[in-house]
Amino acid sequence: MKVLVIKFRNIGDVLLSTPLILNLKNIYPDSIIDFVLNKGCEDMVSNNPNVKNIIIYDRPRIKKLPIFSQLKEEIRFTRNIRHNNYDIVINLTEGERGAQLAFFSGAKIKLGFSVRKGIFSKIKIFDKLGDDKKWQHTVEKDLQFINLLGKEIINKEVKIYWPTEIEQEVDKILSDNSIEQFVHIHPVSRWMFKCWEDDRMAKIIDYLQKDKGIKVIITGAPIKKELDRIDKILRLCKTRPVNLSGMLTLKHLACLSSKAKLFFGVDTAPMHMAAINTPVMALFGASEASKWGPWHNNGKNHYLNDGLQINGCHTVFAESDHTAVYFGAIKKYQGMLNINIEPILKELNELL
């Protein structure tokens, strides 16, 4: 039995599909499971004992090619998928590229979502369709394909794996900085409108370090706009957190957060990674907590899109006003602006 899972989305989306992989392996223990994803997301499933091959689609490289060369690349990529002779293909997105791969795969069973636009929206591709309209968490959305296979969901645990050397390197970073207990703060997102106000984030950092006496470690991606945003936050701080922004891989980030007393941040892939092993406090004012809230592997995960919510491990502050507001060329969401600092300080005081 050969199974192909396709998810052409972002880093956090791929991570949240790992319960599906685990269930497929439990149901078909002798199966070979391959995973197709966008370049940059592979760390979410590498080292996963249930994934045999990771097939990477290098979108940025292909988009830079002349149109004829792009077409050749698409044909080559699709042909390679077909030559693998999969028995089951599960496409976890509504886009054309995954549908195209499923259509030409030659698989006996093809499952996926209705394609939203383009030529493949007019063609019957999948034997059974998942429900992409239901208001449900992304983990549950992906797991529905187990039921469509006529099987029962056995496990809903999100998993990420890293090698021993990553653990050793993170331990050395903590040792070199004389850190035992710490709060991990990842204050930025690739989508800047998901970020909280810089001055409020700085006050949280100062509160944790000065009032609660616990060290803060700041992280961010090695991307200029994120690093610039973090620099602005740090300039507003009266205390000095340990700044590891731009220095860590995704595996290092996951390992680091697993050792934290608490993760604090917004809706990002690092937040989802942290939620696997560490209590999370997350701010949602530009995306739906009901779909993207921090997943609790051993508890309830039914978030609303408004208000303070605690599920026994994770804490979510959510605002449902997702109106875009502009300050010059800067796009923000009203929901993020509506999240005040006082209730957060109160919850932090109780947690720590």
Score class of each variant (00 low, 15 high):
residue 7 K to G: 05
residue 10 N to K: 11
residue 11 I to M: 13
residue 15 L to K: 01
residue 15 L to I: 09
residue 15 L to S: 04
residue 17 S to L: 05
residue 17 S to M: 06
residue 22 L to P: 00
residue 23 N to Q: 00
residue 25 K to D: 01
residue 26 N to W: 11
residue 27 I to G: 12
residue 34 D to H: 07
residue 35 F to H: 00
residue 39 K to G: 03
residue 43 D to R: 03
residue 45 V to K: 03
residue 49 P to D: 07
residue 54 I to R: 08
residue 65 L to E: 14
residue 66 P to E: 12
residue 67 I to Y: 10
residue 67 I to P: 01
residue 72 K to T: 10
residue 74 E to M: 13
residue 80 N to V: 06
residue 82 R to C: 13
residue 84 N to K: 14
residue 88 I to T: 14
residue 90 I to S: 03
residue 93 T to R: 12
residue 94 E to V: 15
residue 97 R to S: 00
residue 97 R to I: 03
residue 104 F to H: 10
residue 113 F to P: 08
residue 115 V to S: 02
residue 124 K to T: 11
residue 128 K to I: 08
residue 129 L to F: 07
residue 131 D to P: 00
residue 135 W to M: 11
residue 140 E to V: 10
residue 143 L to T: 05
residue 145 F to Y: 08
residue 147 N to P: 03
residue 151 K to V: 05
residue 153 I to W: 09
residue 153 I to S: 13
residue 153 I to Y: 12
residue 155 N to D: 15
residue 162 W to E: 00
residue 164 T to F: 12
residue 167 E to F: 03
residue 169 E to D: 13
residue 174 L to F: 02
residue 184 H to G: 06
residue 197 E to A: 08
residue 199 D to M: 08
residue 199 D to E: 14
residue 203 K to A: 06
residue 207 Y to E: 04
residue 208 L to G: 04
residue 209 Q to E: 15
residue 211 D to E: 14
residue 215 K to G: 02
residue 220 G to H: 07
residue 221 A to T: 07
residue 221 A to G: 12
residue 227 L to E: 13
residue 229 R to C: 06
residue 237 C to V: 13
residue 238 K to S: 14
residue 242 V to M: 02
residue 251 K to Y: 11
residue 255 C to N: 07
residue 256 L to K: 01
residue 260 A to R: 04
residue 263 F to T: 04
residue 263 F to V: 05
residue 266 V to D: 02
residue 275 A to I: 05
residue 276 I to V: 15
residue 276 I to D: 04
residue 278 T to Q: 01
residue 278 T to W: 06
residue 284 F to H: 01
residue 287 S to T: 15
residue 294 P to Y: 00
residue 297 N to V: 04
residue 299 G to C: 12
residue 302 H to Q: 15
residue 304 L to D: 07
residue 305 N to E: 11
residue 307 G to W: 05
residue 320 S to K: 08
residue 321 D to Q: 09
residue 325 V to H: 06
residue 335 G to C: 07
residue 339 I to C: 03
residue 343 P to L: 08
residue 347 E to W: 04
residue 348 L to W: 05
residue 351 L to R: 10
residue 351 L to N: 04
